[in-house]
Simulated assay, not measured.
Amino acid sequence: MTPTSMTVPPVPSLTRCFDVVVHLGPIEDHGPTRVGHRRVVPISGGEITGDIEATVLPGGADWQVVRPDGTVELDARYSARTRGGGLVLIHAAGVRTGTPKTLQALLDGSEVAPDSYYFRTQITLECAHDPELERRLFIGSCLRTRDAVRYVAYRVD
């Protein structure tokens, strides 16, 4: 049987939507737990620009699990207030990995070339003021600096 347009799912495309800078507090290292090496990174603020214009609010965090090979599983949740006053809950789940030397340099706060490690997230949004945002998935291409995470969010179309 030959595939037809009715049997082949569409190939997704990506559309650049917004840029995010999330300012981070010091890592809270919880050490080995029943789920792995747990770290919590507080979120102290930031900015979102592009299709969403908002200020990241303090109080969120990234709950991380560090795998034995050094790869970091990320689970960041934080809120932002739009210029119009609406609230957006952002959930970014993903992975950051690289060579042991590169991962240690990132942990030490050293400047590391973004193309020397892999850092991607899946982003979902909750917001009462723009329900269309809740109906889409976004992919983030990220980089880590000493005290911030920066990413570009692409809508998966």
Rank of each mutant, 00 (worst) to 15 (best):
M1D: 13
T2L: 14
P3D: 11
P3T: 14
P3K: 11
V8T: 15
P10E: 11
S13W: 03
L14V: 03
F18I: 08
D19I: 09
D19P: 00
V20A: 02
L24K: 01
P26R: 04
E28R: 08
G31E: 04
G31T: 09
P32V: 15
T33R: 09
T33P: 02
R34D: 14
R34G: 13
G36A: 14
H37S: 08
V40M: 06
V40Y: 08
P42S: 02
E53N: 00
E53F: 00
L57E: 13
D62L: 10
W63C: 10
R67P: 00
T71W: 02
V72E: 01
E73Y: 02
Y78W: 09
S79K: 03
A80L: 02
R81H: 03
R83Y: 03
G85L: 00
G85P: 05
L87F: 11
V88H: 04
T99G: 07
T102K: 04
A105V: 01
D108Y: 06
D108G: 00
V112S: 08
P114Y: 04
D115T: 15
S116L: 10
R120I: 11
I123V: 15
L125R: 03
E126N: 08
C127W: 10
D130K: 00
D130L: 01
E134M: 11
R135V: 02
L137W: 11
G140H: 12
S141V: 11
C142K: 06
V152M: 11
V152K: 13
V152Y: 09
A153Y: 07
V156D: 05
D157M: 00
